[in-house]
Nucleic acid binder design. Structure first.
Lengths: 330, 330
DNA sequence: TTGAAAGCGGTACCAA
DNA sequence: TTGGTACCGCTTTCAA
């Protein structure tokens, strides 16, 4: 691979000059610049990103840490982050922690050694003090799907509570009265918020019964098991609000197995709006703007990296009801 | 951030010595080593990966290029690649090309500038000459899901043709006689192979009719549209072999819309074995060992990176039938 | 407007 | 066993 020196020799100028034309910095004579560009073209020269980072300051690389790349929510997020980053000349390192705190720790070591410019974290295993530690090391961090109200941490979350209320209200409008809830892991903020939204809305109408709630992982399995449990407890339930779409799919399977017709006997609504939710029958869901979330997260991170002023607080994104087949009795 | 020099001062040794203990290379006195380790711990020293790469030779980074991160096949693949790479101390850069040749070209520039150690490519937009060019630049490449029989390119593919035959035979055993096929994009090797398998198997029994084939993208939409088309052409079809699981899901939706009962009236089988295929009803499919594929690809790549001898040819992976609900009349 | 040279944080060869 | 030091490829003063 040709180096900057090769170019400088071929163009008969100093490396400093070549560097200037590469970076469009400082004064360079038009003709000189042309000579240099010629030389670069001839040699097919591509500057070494590593050397640049070492000499300069930034690595033009950010990391995205997700807890479960198999959950379609995260590929969608990754896609948006990656697209936005690429447009700004940044490269994304994908870190999949598999909900494993140890793997996550390992990532932090690796990322530190790479002098990453910033991190987007969508993981619930992480503790706030770790985030603060990163910031003290001057590493900008944006958190997704988790919030720390009293800490100077920039985070992006959907209006989970509000979305849950939308969901419950929609079920009520469809004449459901015995509405169950499949809640996600309590240590996940989003899951808690959604459960709270459900609870508040049900309380308000005097419909709340604790045994209508069953918990599980944010996965198909978790939804399946929880649904089966609820059907046992309340064979007459007529509506289900699942903590996320994956759980809703699990619930769908359980309902199918238990011979409940969806939506005729039981109406079902999920949360997330992942593409997969267009199964048969298509899932009604509370959709998050996953792409917006990814793009915005990347945008905020870039601002922090460029030391532009950003308020480190929680930003909330709108959600909207996506009414499809599982709640409609046509 | 502390540097190797900070450590050397604190430990009262030279940077060379510190470097030796970091890399466990050369002779170092036990006690000296201990001193150095102490110093590293005190300073919380983490060597700069960039500097190491610049001075040494490799970047300990590989890239994974996928055409569509939203297709669950690829997150599964990415997960495996990432896991295997991490175990070997490598970092993975994820590149999502969205089936866009231009984006892909851009990636090549970026990756070259980063002096990536190797690339795993699961993209059909790429041309063999580009792969050869990479190899000429000493950049090891492993291709997934595409093959170049006459070129010295290491590639990993599932036994697509054989899998297709398995699928068709299974449908035949379930008494299907009018079996349609939703084929993927012809420029994707895997899609072609699967179509060929279907064709051969049908020909052999004198069941082949060209109009039983309809093509589309390897996505839900593509399957949906193709299925609708086929139903129009052959309202009496009783079996469907979809080019991949996503298309099968689309087909499921179309069949549902057309009021065909699956599996009672029409039996359906997909290809891939992605987790999502456990929708309702659960999809029978020809499963690839996606995780194996990812791990093996990474393994071969590592061998090439370490200049171990590897035969650059096409390696085929077994597939197996995963019989679930869409082909079973209980 | 251009060039010389001092780093950036390591590695590795050669002496001591 | 250890240390001195010349790079790796690029950026960035500082002078010319």
């Amino acid at each position: 691979m040709p180096t900057i020196r090769d170019v400088s020799k071929l163009a008969n100028v100093s490396v400093a000059t070549v560097s200037r034309v590469i970076n469009q910095s400082g004064y360079v004579n038009k003709e000189t610049e042309e000579k240099v560009r010629q030389a670069m073209a001839v040699l097919q020269y591509v500057p070494s990103g590593m050397a640049r980072s070492l000499a300069g300051k930034n690595s033009a690389t950010i990391a995205l840490i997700v807890p479960d790349i198999l959950n379609p929510f995260f590929p969608e997020l990754a896609r948006a982050v990656e697209a936005e980053a690429q447009e700004r000349g940044y490269t994304v390192i994908l870190c999949n922690s598999d909900y494993n705190a140890e793997k996550e720790q390992n990532y932090f070591r690796v990322l530190a050694s790479r002098r990453i410019d910033g991190i987007i974290i969508a993981s619930n295993t992480i503790r706030p003090d770790q985030l603060l530690a990163l910031q003290k090391q001057e590493i900008p961090v944006v958190v997704i799907d988790n919030q720390y109200p009293d800490l100077p941490i920039l985070s992006l979350v959907s209006k989970n509570r509000e979305g849950a209320k939308l969901a419950v209200r929609h079920l009520l409008e469809q004449d459901c009265r015995k509405i169950a809830h499949l809640s996600g892991p309590i240590d996940v903020t989003a899951a808690r918020e959604r459960s709270l939204g459900y609870e508040e809305e049900m309380q308000e109408r005097g419909l709340f019964v604790p045994s209508l709630i069953a918990g599980g992982q944010f996965q198909i399995e978790g939804g399946y098991d929880a649904m089966l449990l609820l059907l046992e407890r309340h064979p007459d339930l007529d509506g289900v609000f699942a903590g996320n779409d994956l759980m809703a799919v699990g619930a769908l399977k359980a309902l199918y197995k238990a011979d409940r017709k969806v939506p005729q006997q039981v109406k079902l609504i999920g949360f997330d709006g992942i593409a997969l939710s267009t199964v048969v029958p298509e899932l009604t869901t509370v959709a998050q703007s996953i792409t917006d979330m990814g793009r915005q997260a990347t945008g905020y991170l870039m601002k922090m990296i460029q030391k532009e002023p950003v308020t480190r607080r929680t930003y909330e994104l709108d959600v909207h009801l996506l009414i499809r087949q599982t709640t409609l009795t046509e």
